[in-house]
Each structure stands twice: as C-alpha cells, then as structure tokens.
C-alpha cells in the first residue's frame, strides 16, 4: 500500500529538466531511502514529494489526490519535511522552534492546546533535546541543532516524514543516532493507528552503506531516473553500483546486520 506516489513526474528548474517521467510508490510504514550520485535528482524528487517544487508535468499523489489540488495546510497535517539546510530565526530558543512544528494544527484563536504541549514534549524527549529547551538555537553544536530540527518535524506529528540528507555535517555517532531514530519511527506504531503501522519515512542519503543498512525500500536514481527499487538485499549488487556510481566494488554481507555492504575496489593497486 502506498499513500504517497508519483505519476509520470517531470521536474525542472527553469528550462533544465532534472527528473523525467518518474513513477515512484512510497510503501506505507516503511523506511524508503533514495540514493544516487550527486545531481541525480534525489533531493529534487524529495522536494516535489513535499510540494516544495511544482511539477513541470505529471503529479504527486497523496491518497490518490494530486498535491497541487490539496490545501497546503491539509498536506502539512499529513506530510512533514525537513529541508537540507533549514534556517532558524535569530536568537530563537529550542522549545520555541520545536513548537513551531505545531503550526498546521493550530488556528489564530487556538495557538496552544494540551495536544500541542504533549506533541512538543514527546518530540523533544524522543530526540533527546528536552534539556536544551531554554537554550538559544544559535549556540548549539551542529549535532544538537540537527536533532532540534528533527524534533520540530516530529512535533508536526505527520504520518509521512521526508528528510533531506539529515546526516550531513554530523559525525559518525550522531549519524547513527539520527538513523536509529528514523528506524524507530517506522518500527513503533504511529499514534492512533489501529494496524500498528509505524510512520512512513523517506530519506535522501549520500552514504550507500548506511542506506542499505537502514532502508526497507531502496531507490537508486541516476540522471533523473530510477535505476532500481526494492529491498536493499536485491538492489545493492556490484553491477548496480557500477551502473549507478561508475565504481568497481565488492558487495559483502555486513558483519553486524547482514545487509549488503559495499567495499570499493582498489584501482590504485590494479595496474
């Protein structure tokens, strides 16, 4: 089942077509990771899934309805999105920033409900930033700041969550922390869901090995097209890596998780 999908989606900046004729279905309650070389259109695709970019042709469908026809506030109650480099207002406190994630659930006359309070404190506890609540976002480290932004996206409490390279600028332990959180979101039931389904998360990642480790559904893109899509164990092969990234490699099982692990070849030793 897919609540979110694309249909013959073509995306362009001015006249330059970046993604052409893309058909993509995002499986519900799973972690979908989009990978591909630089400028393959993966971030562009994510932006379109979150209606930040209007399609040149084709459409993005949410529950069968085109995003272009839905009120943006209604979309915001279903889809949360964390852009690659979000900018916080100067001198804003952590709790203030996280609480702005509640925007789509609020009205002019209903600026703060108990529900808002619960969602914000849950999001902050989950991302381990509750202790920073009163601090100014400006004075946080890169890792802390990224967790605060994720907390804001979580406070939005959407069933679908889109993350654009959430691990950029983070050291390896913070990268693992963020990705573990992503796994948890998909593995624990989303509030009020009878079928015990977790959240649907779409992540754009640079690191192929991390993608293979955390994804349920892996989408490999090249030059604006999907080259392969499916479970990592089927998608990640030496042939695919050569085709998509132009890299010779050996694929071995990850010693910890058993997921495919890409070990690049050593061309400097070959000749």
């Amino acid at each position: 089942m897919s609540r979110l999908s694309t249909q013959a989606l073509t995306l362009a900046y001015e006249d330059r077509t970046v993604v052409a004729d893309l058909d993509l279905a995002v499986p519900d309650g799973e972690v979908t990771v989009i990978v591909g070389p630089n400028a393959c259109g993966k971030s562009t695709t994510l932006r379109a899934l979150g209606r930040l970019l209007k399609p040149k042709s084709g459409s993005v469908l949410l529950d069968g309805a085109s995003l272009a026809t839905l009120p943006t506030k209604r979309i915001a109650q279903q889809i949360g999105l964390l852009p690659q480099t979000p900018v916080a207002p100067e001198a804003i406190t952590v709790a203030d920033l996280v609480s702005r994630g509640r925007q789509p659930h609020q009205h002019w006359w209903q600026q703060w409900s108990d529900e808002d309070e619960r969602a914000v404190s849950e999001a902050m506890t989950r991302t381990d930033v509750a202790d920073l609540a009163e601090r100014s976002v400006d004075e946080l480290s890169g890792g802390q700041r990224q967790r605060v932004w994720i907390a804001m996206a979580l406070a939005q409490e959407t069933e679908l969550l889109l993350l654009d390279e959430p691990t950029t600028y983070l050291d390896i332990s913070h990268q693992v922390e963020v990705l573990d959180l992503v796994r948890q979101l998909a593995d624990t039931p989303f509030k009020g869901d009878k079928g015990d389904k977790g959240r649907t998360v779409v992540v754009v990642l640079h690191d192929l090995n991390q993608a293979a480790r955390y994804a349920d559904h892996l989408v490999a893109m090249k030059s604006g097209r999907v080259v392969a899509a499916g479970p990592p164990s089927e998608v990640v092969t030496a042939d695919l890596v050569r085709e998509v990234f132009g890299l010779d490699c050996v694929v071995v099982p990850d010693p910890v998780t058993g997921s495919p692990l890409v070990v690049p070849g050593a061309p400097w030793k070959a000749s």
């Binding site: 709790a95 619960r118 404190s121 506890t125 009163e134």
Partner: peptide, 9 residues
C-alpha cells in the same frame, strides 16, 4: 516526557 512550552511564553 516533561511538559514544555515555548520558553518565555
């Protein structure tokens, strides 16, 4: 979780 609200509000 501890109840929080935007600091200062």
């Amino acid at each position: 979780s501890v109840p929080v609200r935007p600091a200062g509000y």
